[in-house]
Nucleic acid binder design. Structure first.
Lengths: 224, 224
DNA sequence: CCGATCTCTGACGAGACCTTGACGACCGGA
DNA sequence: TCCGGTCGTCAAGGTCTCGTCAGAGATCGG
């Protein structure tokens, strides 16, 4: 959930933006003028700021100047003025983008997404760990007792399907469908063969599996 | 001195941009179409890319798709189309900004400044080291046992894609897309040929690779 | 126009992987 | 006890993938 601070003196536009941004999954704070905007920004530390240049009390560039010394997130400027000079001034004052009113809501959202994209970055794939082995989804690597183990594509697909939902029972049909495809829902024999291979590679005692368990008649379950 | 790669098929505009950007203190490379653009980008590693969407060979979004898997710098899109849909598509495909033609040169420069401001871009291009060879991403230089080795552009692209994520398995499709482009996802034979060349140049025993490993059916992995 | 370099393409052997079948163990119900 | 069903194990076949080599085609600079 990202936090957006919208600064604009037009209550109607403010309302439209609040609704649209909320629908897009953002947290929205608003400020009707420059003074409260600066206070708000300092108080909530938004992930991104949308700033209208035409404010009643302060010039928009003044707000930018007040923001920029400490605020490092992206600032997207709105303005009714399409003159290039204004754009250059705002951008050089620290704005990251400049949109002229009237604007298309979809475009504004896209520009927001673009601005936010370079922020937090690196959405991490989880690393699943047990006492005996670890599965690194991002690196596609499995290590048993610290030493890497090679898996075939099918083995990996099966393990991934199980490990992505620790503790959850996964039906045979579901496994077959996600690894082999919808046409293989009846080939339960595949599961037996490949589960055996996985257990031989991962389990401390493959004959008595501790992590890759069978639920007879139902499916399989990974228990960390 | 920042390095700008300008991609446009209009020689006149290309010339104007080159002059203006040079005057603003940038290093300028140019490419007239998508294919050479991707090669250029991989070869010179620009600090920022200016991309015209209307190219003779590839769709602009295809160039973006080919760029984005590995290129982290800002991409500023130029286009004659002012439709919001086009803007949204380009921005969501990875563009950082979208400017409609005709545009004011001062505004373009300001937007470039804004884009460059947030990415010091020289952000830690790492030097990857193994017991046998080192890869300097910034200098684009490879040394084996202390002596420099010559790589062809394709070899370098492949090595870079692998070395940028040490220990991570990289799927064949991913490699083909980032080195040759989205249209070459099926040409797995290329990988075999060029991996062999890389191993011949870098591995102590090319027949039994230690650093550039292949995971059958899945992809390749660089392990330091 | 020519030569050098790089990229692409085809053929082949070797190896890895997937599939398939046979067989025994286990369990609950008749 | 017998019996059907499910599960686990093992091994062998065919298929696909991988590595290697060599040569044609394209591109660039002189």
């Amino acid at each position: 959930m990202t936090r957006v601070l919208v600064i604009d003196d037009d209550p109607q536009l403010l309302r439209a933006l609040r609704i649209t941004l909320r629908a897009a999954g953002h947290d929205v704070d608003t400020a009707p003028d420059g003074r409260t905007a600066l206070q708000q920004a300092a108080a909530v530390h938004p992930d991104v700021v949308v700033l209208d240049l035409g404010l009643p009390d302060l010039d928009g560039t003044e707000v930018l100047a007040g923001l920029r010394p400490w605020y490092t997130g992206p600032v997207l400027v709105l303005s009714a003025r399409a003159d290039s000079q204004d754009k250059v001034h705002a951008l050089d004052a620290g704005a990251d983008d400049y949109v002229t009113k009237p604007f298309d809501m979809g475009e504004l959202l896209a520009r927001l997404r673009a601005a936010l994209r370079r922020g937090p970055s690196e959405a991490a794939e989880p690393v699943v760990t047990t006492d005996h082995f670890t599965v690194d989804l991002a690196d596609r690597q499995v290590t048993v007792d610290g030493t890497p183990v090679r898996l075939t594509p099918t083995e990996w697909g099966l393990l991934e399907a199980l490990v992505r939902h620790p503790g959850r029972l996964i039906a045979q049909r579901q496994l077959l469908q996600s690894v082999w495809g919808p046409a293989y829902e009846k080939e339960t024999h595949y599961l037996r063969v490949y589960l055996a291979q996985l257990r031989r590679k991962l389990e401390p005692d493959p004959a008595h599996p501790r992590y890759l368990r069978t639920e007879p008649g139902m499916g399989y379950r990974f228990t960390p």
